[in-house]
Design a protein around this nucleic acid. Sequence first.
RNA 1: GCCUCCGUAGUUCAAUGGACAGAACACUGGACUUCUAAGCCAGUUAUGUAGGUUCGAUUCCUACCGGAGGCACCA
Length: 561
Amino acid sequence: MKEKIRHLIQNTLHDLNVSGADFSVEHTADFSHGDYATNVALVSAKAVKTSPHALAEKIAGHLETKLPSEIEKVEVAGAGFINFTLSAAFLSVALKNAASSPNTFGNATTHANTKVIVEYTDPNPFKEFHIGHLMSNTIGEAISRLIASRGAEVKRACYQGDVGLHVAKALYGAKQANPKNASEWGKAYALGASLYEENESAKKEIEIINKAIYERNDSVLNALYDGGRKVSLEYFETIYKRLGTHFDFYFFESEMSKPGLTLVREFLKKGVFEESNGVLVFKAEKYNTKLHTRVYITSQGLPTYETKELGLHFTKAKTYPADQSIIITANEQDSVYAVGLEALRHIDPKLFEKTKHLSHGMLRLPTGKMSSRTGNVITAEWLIDEVKGKVREKIAERDFAPDEKEKITEAVAIAAIKYSILRQAVGGDIIFDFEKSISFEGDSGPYLQYAYVRAMSVLQKAQTAEVRGTDAESAAADGNIELARRLVRFPDVVARAAEEYAPHYLVTYLTEFASAFNNFYARVKIIGSPDEAALLALTRAVSTVLKNGLTLLGMPVVERM
RNA sequence: GCCUCCGUAGUUCAAUGGACAGAACACUGGACUUCUAAGCCAGUUAUGUAGGUUCGAUUCCUACCGGAGGCACCA
């Protein structure tokens, strides 16, 4: 709808012979200003040498002569805004769509026939799956779903560091602690990491182990390594299942050395990389003064993270030739990616154009940075279970069967956690305070789930909840119902959230929408009302928006709670 | 030192260069006792400082103050 209005204005500008500056078409903040507003007169007035208000009147006058059926009226307001009010006919069609095509309302086909690969989470085997990974996973999953809702084919990828110094530290610790499960491996890592700092001989042995891992020439070590890797990976799968996520491709750091090294050597000859102080480097500052030099092959001849990442770009492209490759990491890696992508630009410009790095903020504890090295770490599993405990207290007196109770408890806990991550713009840090960060009231995941539960409760109680076209029409005709006007914005909001990789737009919208529904629910008795059929149609449409919205964000939906 | 990001109510977050800067938590008061009260209604409180650009700046530019991250062989 937003695009339709934009085109309408563009045509009008053309007819009036007004040069079109960059204008916006946006949802109004207040429904008394209609449904959409444009600032076109404000931005163009100067070029035409008239007052904004006069130009607005002129444009609006022209628009009125050829209004499509979706628009009820056009008005000039304020300093020169032109406001558009949607017609009951349009609202009725949209409500009918939402009520009768629950699985597709909000989707679009703007990106049909495009292939997208999204890399996120990237936990390291042998180490904990901590709340930072939880953050990356939550954001990555929401973005993946949003992109898929545009009609694109989305594949999810996870890149895991199964070699490197951190693994050597874990193995060194494991030799002493003999870990059996993922959590004990996490402790073995912490032990190895602290001995590496404190003890010279431990440090030396860890470095020997590190080399042996690359060469795989020690059968005892190999057995320990293979066992630990398997335990970690299986453990990660149990977490993905709980979070409602999955991966189509797993890439391992151990497999990226070879393709990475080949590329670096090839492009050393072509002058992209160069030798400096006994190491091979890429001097990114030669192309962009804000970037810096990074090492690709160490003095020992080992590939660094940067080299493996380069190998990863090409391995992904080979595995799944995507039109767009998105990588989601924490923002502490911003400069690494800026340099790495600059190198890619000189190696394969086409692949560079397709690749996009997005970063999210850090989850920090009120006490400072979370570190798995010192053991000052909160694991994802601990957090989920802790939150579940609180949900369990709330649900204790409810009369649900034990297994349904358990299912609801898990779903509410996951939604509460995911909401706390997705509610704010991607990129900012989250100061993680357990008591304050996870909420069940007000702006929260459970608030959204609860609104859906209420809608479902009404629909189930109603004798018939089948939606007829005439019901949607009468629901839309009730001018007092701001809820319907809010509801039809859903597709625009999803589109924007997907285009800008910004799930929080959808979160904000859903929260306001749920609030509008709760207000309606408290004010209007639906069942038994003279308008019952129309109100049920509206409620049905509301349930669609809440369900689809939650699902797009990767939050579980429950029918009762 | 250099580079990047960020400073909005007591707190945690929104706001596409636009129309009175929105929520929630907390605090105070209220309604119903009717489809689930994890709910609804009402109230108090905010753009770090100083300039600039603009018809209009929380948003763009400059400086300063404050915070976070990064800056050659960790990832």
